[in-house]
């Protein structure tokens, strides 16, 4: 049983490697597709995540003050 699984895994990985090899040289990762609109999406996401993290730090600071009261 174990041997069979190993064999299947090996086969699958071979297929995966093969699929990668047949790809074009153009590194078409997701961020470069559709006119690179995803770069813009990622930018907005970064800005929002940054602000959100910032909000949490402010929140923590306020909590500290509230506790002391």
């Amino acid at each position: 049983m174990k041997k069979l699984i190993t064999l299947i895994v090996l086969m699958l990985s071979f297929v995966a490697v093969n699929a990668q090899g047949s790809k074009t040289v153009e590194m078409a990762d997701v961020l470069r597709s559709s006119g690179k609109i995803y770069v813009v999406v990622a930018t907005i996401a970064i800005v929002f995540v940054g602000l959100a993290i910032y909000l949490f730090t402010i929140d923590r600071r306020l909590k500290k003050i509230e506790k002391e009261n």
Binding site: I37, V39, V40, V47
Partner: peptide, 15 residues
Amino acid sequence: ILHETIRNLYFHVPM
């Protein structure tokens, strides 16, 4: 080169 990323102008430069 820029394609749609020119829209980043509205989100990167204002920072």
